[in-house]
Amino acid sequence: MKKITLHRGKDKAAWQLHPWVFSGAIQEVDDKPRNGDIVKVFNNDREFIAYGVYNAHSRVAVRLLEWNQQYPIDEAWWRNRIRRAAELKIHLLTGQNNTVRLIFAEADFLPGLIVDKFGDFLSVQIHSSGIEAVKTIIVDELVQLLKPKGIYERSDLNARQHEGLPDTNGLLYGDMPSEFVDVIENDIRYQINIIEGQKSGFYCDQRDNRSLTAQYVKGKRVLDCFCYSGGFTLNAFKAGASSVVSVDSSALAIETLHKNIGLNGFNPTMHRAIQADVNKYLRQLGEEGEKFDVIILDPPKYAPSRSALDKAARAYKDLNRRALLLLESDGLLATFSCSGAMDIDTFKQVVAWAALDAGKEIQFIRQFNQPEDHPVRASFPEGEYLKGLLVRVV
């Protein structure tokens, strides 16, 4: 096994179980390991720190896997990790929920691997060369444990470019998913598109937050922005919203939403689905004098890195300002950020600035987080990416 030696003073994070070793921390690489090879990582005094996966192509040159030298990274290690991660989430699968994130990358000690269960199918994303090298082991273990109808790979990610990997989409096992796969979340039925939908096909990270937000919508006029396949919209109708306007720029999202409204038997006359740029549509609603009781903002990631944080903060502020202008006294704004680079305190400040610019006084009445199947590892706080606020206009 090849060896990696870290610069003196650059080993603190690795000792503290952080899974990333950046290229600048490396003093010496022995014997030119190939991308995806398992390596031993040592400090400057030649003390063993951890086993990891090497990739010279990536800024994260080593992704650490195991800190106990007595447990080398072999096939049994991979199988044990996959099984343990999945078994810790299986209890979330009930008659009311058959969608769950079974494996959440670094948080589950499997950096670069995402596995979502959607009904009878699994959707897999592979971000790193180390996971790519053991793909057949992963698939075999998932089949043995879960016996899915099919496993489909959606590895068309920017992260793969940084790892020197090409995009890969396709069937890994079993039956090809149909165009729309039936799933249940919060006792609501969805048809989702695993093959062409966004990310892995469905955002199960908002499962709890959809249910929590729905507690406030009975008899209310709701505006659901960046609605995608209708998670917040459908939960709002189930909770008794008087009407919902859903907005997304994606034609596929709007098509899927229409299917899901009908699938659950909700009254289509109480619903409007708008294909439009959300910021432009919010501006249009303001010019038309429209008002809502509850507005939901669940935008895509505006800050992919800390270097983009200032620009993202301005975008979040403008988006929330436009939404707040459409709310009267006692109106509620459920606003979210999935940018890991923006922490909750910064997000609160951005929303406070938005309220100030909108001439609104607000109260923060609830904070939202990512659910149990998206855990945050203590040694890897970067895994905490999803946060939200429920805001009341007073």
Rank of each mutant, 00 (worst) to 15 (best):
2 K>G: 07
3 K>Y: 07
4 I>K: 13
8 R>T: 13
9 G>K: 09
12 K>R: 14
17 L>C: 08
21 V>G: 06
22 F>P: 04
24 G>D: 13
27 Q>F: 08
31 D>W: 03
34 R>S: 15
35 N>Y: 07
39 V>P: 10
42 F>I: 12
43 N>T: 10
44 N>F: 12
49 I>T: 04
51 Y>M: 11
52 G>W: 05
53 V>S: 15
54 Y>I: 10
55 N>E: 09
57 H>I: 04
57 H>K: 15
60 V>M: 14
61 A>Q: 05
67 W>H: 11
74 D>L: 09
76 A>F: 01
78 W>N: 08
80 N>W: 06
82 I>S: 03
84 R>F: 09
85 A>F: 07
89 K>R: 15
89 K>I: 02
91 H>T: 03
91 H>S: 09
102 L>F: 09
102 L>Y: 01
104 F>C: 10
105 A>G: 05
111 P>G: 14
113 L>E: 10
115 V>N: 04
116 D>F: 04
119 G>E: 12
120 D>Y: 10
124 V>I: 15
125 Q>S: 05
132 E>R: 05
134 V>I: 14
136 T>L: 11
153 E>H: 03
155 S>Y: 01
160 R>N: 00
164 G>Y: 10
165 L>K: 01
167 D>V: 04
172 L>N: 03
180 F>Y: 15
181 V>M: 02
181 V>I: 14
182 D>G: 00
185 E>N: 04
185 E>Y: 08
189 R>H: 13
194 I>M: 11
195 I>H: 00
204 C>I: 15
206 Q>Y: 06
206 Q>P: 00
206 Q>R: 07
211 S>L: 11
212 L>F: 12
214 A>V: 00
216 Y>I: 03
217 V>H: 09
219 G>E: 11
221 R>G: 01
221 R>E: 09
223 L>K: 07
224 D>H: 00
227 C>I: 01
228 Y>I: 06
231 G>R: 09
231 G>F: 06
233 T>F: 08
234 L>G: 10
235 N>Y: 03
236 A>Q: 08
237 F>A: 09
238 K>E: 00
239 A>M: 05
240 G>V: 02
241 A>T: 00
245 V>S: 04
246 S>T: 02
246 S>F: 06
247 V>Y: 02
248 D>T: 10
250 S>M: 05
251 A>S: 14
253 A>Y: 01
256 T>G: 11
256 T>R: 12
258 H>L: 14
260 N>E: 14
268 P>N: 08
269 T>S: 15
269 T>Q: 15
272 R>H: 10
277 D>M: 05
279 N>A: 14
281 Y>D: 00
282 L>K: 01
282 L>P: 06
288 E>I: 00
294 V>W: 14
299 P>F: 12
299 P>W: 06
300 P>G: 06
306 R>D: 11
309 L>N: 09
309 L>A: 15
311 K>Y: 07
316 Y>I: 05
316 Y>W: 11
316 Y>A: 01
318 D>W: 00
327 L>C: 07
329 S>V: 12
331 G>T: 06
332 L>G: 09
332 L>E: 10
339 S>L: 12
340 G>S: 06
352 A>M: 11
356 L>D: 13
357 D>A: 09
359 G>L: 08
360 K>Y: 05
361 E>W: 07
363 Q>V: 03
364 F>M: 04
370 Q>T: 01
371 P>Y: 04
374 H>M: 00
375 P>Q: 03
377 R>K: 13
378 A>I: 10
378 A>E: 13
378 A>G: 02
379 S>C: 08
382 E>Y: 12
385 Y>V: 08
392 R>H: 04
392 R>L: 00
